[in-house]
Each structure stands twice: as C-alpha cells, then as structure tokens.
Write a protein that binds this DNA or RNA. Structure first.
Length: 440
RNA sequence: CGGAGUGUAGCGCAGUCUGGUAGCGCACCUGCUUCGGGAGCAGGGGGUCGGAGGUUCGAAUCCUCUCACUCCGACCA
C-alpha cells in the first residue's frame, strides 16, 4: 500500500480525551475514530489489525474443533424472557422496540439463541459439538472508557459447547482452555489463566485469561513460574482427553488470581516469596462451564443411549477481539508509539523513501516495493514527499515491525537501512538482499 | 447513577467575567528555499461558536431549556 493513496489520518498531537497509551496511540495513528461514547469506527489501519486478530482466533477455534456460525446482533426478547435473563440483565442491555411494538434487544451475548438453535439436535449421537461466532455485541456500560478496551460496542468471539454429560463437558472446556493458550501465544501475549468468579452467567468452572499491563482493570497475583513455562508450543491432539487435561492441570495448578479471588494466606503458603508476582491485568478471555443453566429452561434436550431425555451440558467461551487490539498495544509500546507483534501487525514492514521525486531513489524504492508485493509481503510504502523527520516519526508511531529506509546516501553504496522497531537495531543491507530477507 | 468539567476550523486552545467585524498554534493549499529524526519565508483557504428559545439596536459572550462528550467514584468482556 502506498501512503500517497491510503487513508491514514495521523494526529500529530495527543487528543485530550485519551488517557491511556492504547487509546491515545490508536487515535494518533488513525486506527479508530470515536463515533459516540464507547463506539468507534475502525479506520483502515485499525481494521487490518482487528481482522488479523480475528483470523488467529478463528484458526485456533477451528483447530480445536469448534464450528463457525453467525447469529444476528438484534435478538427477540422472547428467548431472554424464557431464560429469566430479560429481567436479570439490567440496564446494561440495550432494549429496542420494532415497528410492531415487539421487544427486541441488541445482544450482549448469545447463550439463549445458540441453545435455541441447538434444540434441533435430538440424539446423543450428534454430540459433542461446539459452535462459535465472531460478532458485534453491545453492552450499555455506565461509563465507557479506555477506547476500545471498554467500549459499549465491541467485537467478541463467543463459543458454546454441548455435551451429553458433565465429564464430556469437562473435556470440551479443557479444549477451549488449551485453544486460548495457543490463541494468545500466537499474538505474542502471555495471557495468564486465573480462577474466576462465575458472575451472572453462573456455573462451576470458570477461568479468566489476563495479560499484564499497568493500566489493567484488576490487580493480579500469580506465580512467576507462569513466565518460565513454554507458551509457544501447545501442539496437542485435542482428541487426547488425558493429555489435554494434563496441560490444563499444569496451567491451573500454579497460583494465579485476580483481587476478587485472591487469598493472601494461600498465596504466601503456596508460592515462595521470590516467585510472587503482583501487577495489573486486562481480561482478554473468559471461559465458563455452566451445565444445564440454559438447556433446562429452554428445553434443549437430547436422547441418551439409554433412551432417556436429558438437558445438554454447556459451556461458553469468550474472547474480546476488539479489546485485544487495545490490550496488545498496552502490552507493547514505547514513548515513540506502538510496537506491533508481527502476527497482528497491519503491515509487516514500512518502506521509507527519503527523497520522493528523486529519480534514482524512486526507482530503487519502487523495485523493492513491487518485489516484496510479488512475494506476498505486506508493505506500507511511504512514497509521499514529506520530509524524512516526519516519515520516521510516523513510521515509529504506527509501529510496523520492520522499517526499510532508502535514501540517496545509502543508495550510493547500493544499500538500504533496515530497522527493527522493537529493538531499535539498525543494519545496512545490500539492496539486492532486501526482498529475499523479508520473503518467507 | 453520584461528583467535577468541557463543547469555538481536522487537532490543541484563547476569547465569555465586562455584549460591539470570530482569533492563535499545528495541520491543509500555492510559490520559493530546504531535505537522514516532526524546516524557513511569503501568500492563501476553511467556523451553523453543540442545539432551541429568550433579552438586546446588536449575543460565542447575558437568561432559560436541552443535547453531547470527558474525567473521578461505584460497575463491567
């Protein structure tokens, strides 16, 4: 993409309303634009990141055997009245009337709807199943803040598992647990699973996945061992019940809790002082096992091998996709701007033409730009006639993992400068080697 | 929902107390000089002053109502 043809409204100054780093940087780098309290338009740069994250989530859900569907944002209130949550949910739920005066709502979640969908299944032979979708939700928060980290409208992946009995349900829960470890690790995050309150959704088993960031909403206490574990390689056979359970055990046997669940005495007893870590965390995922909480009232029954009808056992599994965009920035930025982990970066590298309009420089840049594009490398090419200083600032701000800098000075010797955004490391690379270096 | 604020050009702000031609910086456009970490000079464009009503010869400014947004607290993926 050529910046001269792109839409990337960079703000030179900090917008006054943005208090935290991710919000400030997302506005400055032209990723988002606020439309109302807690609701944002995703501009090209932000949208690219959102889609990358969404795709990683999708791939890991699929890998774990979940099946993608898409349910509407606007739901009929009927199902919610049946489950009892229409009254229980409170003003967070945005209630709407259609032209026939029917009660509708903008879905804050989809347990009722998916359970109703699943009622068509009659036999245990069609279990287990796990259905998920990635859809916009709306929760009318009293006080939205922190940009996309706590908006009212947000993109969420929610999955729902259906099993015949508690034991099978546990395996479904464990599979999602492992899928979450993989998902966050692929984004360059260490999201620590912590035992959680089950909250209004209810249920027995529940874990939250939190990433560490100073601006996190809750205080967290955990064992340093988490950081020494292998977060990169959970290549696992999801059908191997024992191995999946073992991995979950490994990650849940160590102490980790948010302030809500924190038990000081237990923490001090189980974790040696040298390994005790405290900090703040941002919740990016939450999984529940809630059994028959919805299947019973909504009549989602299947016939077991013994011919008896039983309500299915369910769990639900959420990931805050749009929140992750902010969360990743909170976990990865410096005073100059964003530092994107490569798997979610909007572009892999930024190509800077230091002297646009100069025939030789233009030609060298053009050759590299086309060469990389031909190899499928995502390049943002700054072909504008801005001054070098401004280009450097903007490129650091938007945080692409690599910068390739080409100007007359290096061109004399046939070299380009390659800069790593994260480490700041620079090296001179012969022009002829650039394309090879960045093609996979 | 309690408390505190703010709405004036794309962004950041002054002007409001004390009514009298709507300003400044950045950004933007034109030209010239510059050109490896946010350049200089000259010229220029852009505003229903959040909205409605009122007072007045005259309202960004005073009065009434209203809407939106931000921050702190309680609450949350």
């Amino acid at each position: 993409m050529r910046i001269s043809q792109y839409f990337m409204p960079i703000l030179r100054d900090d917008p006054k309303e943005a208090e935290i780093a991710s919000h400030r940087l997302m506005l400055r780098s032209g990723m988002i634009r606020q439309e109302a309290a807690g609701s944002y338009s995703w501009l090209p740069m932000g949208f690219r990141v959102l889609k990358k994250i969404e795709q990683i989530v999708r791939e890991e859900q699929d890998r774990a055997g979940a099946i993608e569907v898409l349910m509407p944002t606007i739901q009929s209130a009927d199902l919610w009245k049946k489950s009892g949550r229409y009254n229980a949910y409170g003003p967070e739920m945005l209630r709407i009337r259609d032209r026939h005066d029917r009660d509708m709502l903008y879905g804050p979640t989809n347990e009722e709807m998916i359970t109703d969908i699943f009622r068509s299944v009659q036999s245990y032979k069609d279990l287990p199943r796990n259905l998920y979708h990635i859809q916009w939700k709306f929760r009318d928060e009293v006080r939205p803040r922190f940009g996309v980290m706590r908006g009212r409208e947000f993109l969420m992946k929610d999955a729902y598992s259906f099993d015949l009995d508690r034991e099978a349900g546990q395996h479904s829960y464990n599979k999602m647990f492992v899928a979450y470890l993989r998902t966050f690790a692929r984004m360059g995050l260490k999201a620590v699973p912590m035992r959680a309150e089950t909250g209004p959704i209810g249920g027995k088993d529940s874990h939250e996945f939190l990433i560490l960031a100073d601006t996190g909403e809750s205080e967290v206490f955990f064992d340093r061992d988490f950081y020494d574990m292998d977060w990169s390689n959970f290549d696992i056979d999801y059908d191997d019940v024992g191995k999946v359970a073992k991995l979950v055990d490994d990650f849940t046997s160590k102490y980790a809790a948010t302030d809500e669940k924190h038990d000081k005495a237990e923490f001090e007893q189980r974790v040696p002082e040298a390994r005790r870590l405290t900090g703040r965390g941002i919740e990016v995922g939450h999984i529940f096992f809630f059994g028959t909480k919805y299947s019973e009232p909504l009549g989602c029954l299947v016939q077991g091998p013994d011919g008896k009808q039983v309500p299915v056992q369910s769990g639900s599994y959420g990931i805050g996709v749009s929140r992750l965009v902010g969360g990743i920035i909170e976990a990865s930025h410096d005073e100059n701007g964003i530092i994107w982990p490569e798997p979610v970066a909007p572009f892999k590298l930024g190509l800077i033409n230091l002297k646009a309009g100069d025939a030789e420089t233009d030609q060298a840049c053009e050759k590299i730009y086309r060469g990389l594009a031909a190899k499928g490398v995502e390049v943002l090419y700054d072909d504008t006639d801005e001054r070098p200083g401004g280009k450097f600032k903007v490129m650091d701000l938007i945080g692409l993992p690599w910068q390739v800098i080409i100007g007359p000075r290096g061109l004399k010797d046939g070299i380009a400068e390659v800069k790593n955004r994260k480490t700041g490391e620079r090296s001179n690379v012969p022009l002829a080697d650039i394309i090879g270096r960045f093609s996979n």
